[in-house]
């Protein structure tokens, strides 16, 4: 593949998905896209590029973008965000939403469903506290293909053994030979929709909790800022944003701020203005106090 061809693919991926590939990531493009080229009877990746430029290439472009943006996922990945969800987020929302008794959760990169189903399992495990509450979980992803897998909720023996406690497997899955399927009642808790984070997502409505983990790391700085600002618009003042362990809002935007000692968890700063409107040295907001006392 020539540098011109690689640059064409980089631009295509950046425009379509926000994925930023540095000059040294050519190996990654080759490993992900060679199977597509071979399936089309092509011997080299350089033969694939012209096929992306002809009229009617849209399905192939979508396939290429999906091949580059699909990443491995597993249940309760990184564990800590789910501890934050159980110990900080849900208790705060139980207090803040006592009237509405409704919580809306968005998994912005649902991939093959492990994250939204992990959240659904957390919700199920907190059934006593959430009895009578309406919990909506929406999972979105750029890739239609991974969402089909997410909807089916069928996982291999390997997939259910990484991060998923065995008692959860027994409780929330149905075994079918070598595979395990999410139980119907848990599948019914999650709705899936295709969505590109680069385009407007305001139509999804407001969310009390947004999981947007390990997505921003693939974007360049202006795209990160743009996405975070738009996420802030649909997060109520007392809502939460969960980022990946390696991600932060610091230095990017002041629409969110990190919650101290809760790695990855952020809150909108518009909540700060309400908590302390006039004082130059604002005391800790009630919401933060709830968060800090959650453990």
């Amino acid at each position: 593949m020539t540098s011109n061809e690689y640059d064409y693919l980089r631009k295509l991926l950046k425009d379509r998905s926000g994925l930023v590939l540095s000059a040294d990531k050519q190996y990654l493009v080759e490993s992900r896209l060679l199977p597509i080229a071979r399936r089309l009877g092509l011997t080299k990746l350089s033969e694939l590029v012209p096929k992306l430029k002809v009229p009617g290439a849209e399905p192939l472009i979508v396939e290429v973008v999906e091949a580059m943006t699909t990443n491995e996922s597993f249940f309760f990945r990184d564990k800590v965000p789910f501890d934050h969800f159980r110990e900080t987020v849900v208790p705060a929302l139980l207090a803040a939403r006592a009237q509405e008794r409704r919580i809306r959760i968005w998994c912005a990169a649902a991939s093959t469903g492990q994250e939204p189903y992990s959240i659904a399992m957390c919700v199920k495990e907190m059934a006593a506290k959430l009895a009578g509450w309406r919990i909506e979980i929406i999972g979105t992803d750029l890739s239609v293909e991974v969402l089909e897998k997410a909807k089916a909720g069928v996982y291999s023996q390997f997939e259910v053994q990484r991060g998923l406690p065995i008692n959860m497997l027994v409780k929330y899955f149905v075994q079918s030979g070598e595979t395990w399927q999410i139980a119907p009642e848990l599948r019914a808790m999650v709705q899936y929709r295709p969505l590109n984070l680069l385009v407007d997502f305001a139509h999804l409505g407001n969310f009390d909790v947004i999981f947007c983990r390990n997505v921003l790391i693939y974007f360049d700085q202006p795209t990160k800022i743009d996405v975070l600002v738009r996420l802030a618009r649909i997060t109520p003042a007392d809502g939460f944003l969960m980022l990946g362990a390696a991600e932060t809002v610091v230095g990017l935007t002041d629409t969110f701020r990190p919650v101290p000692e809760r790695r990855g968890l952020c809150v909108p700063t518009k909540g700060d203005a309400k908590a302390a409107p006039a004082k130059p040295k604002a005391p800790e907001s009630p919401r933060l106090a709830v968060a800090a006392g959650g453990r």
């Binding site: 023996q157 390997f158 053994q161 990484r162 991060g163 406690p165 065995i166």
Partner: peptide, 17 residues
């Protein structure tokens, strides 16, 4: 039992469990 590994297994699964 505290956990359960279904064979075949690999390092990641043992570590996770």
């Amino acid at each position: 039992a505290n956990e359960y590994i279904m064979k075949p297994f690999d390092k990641d699964i043992v570590e996770a469990k």
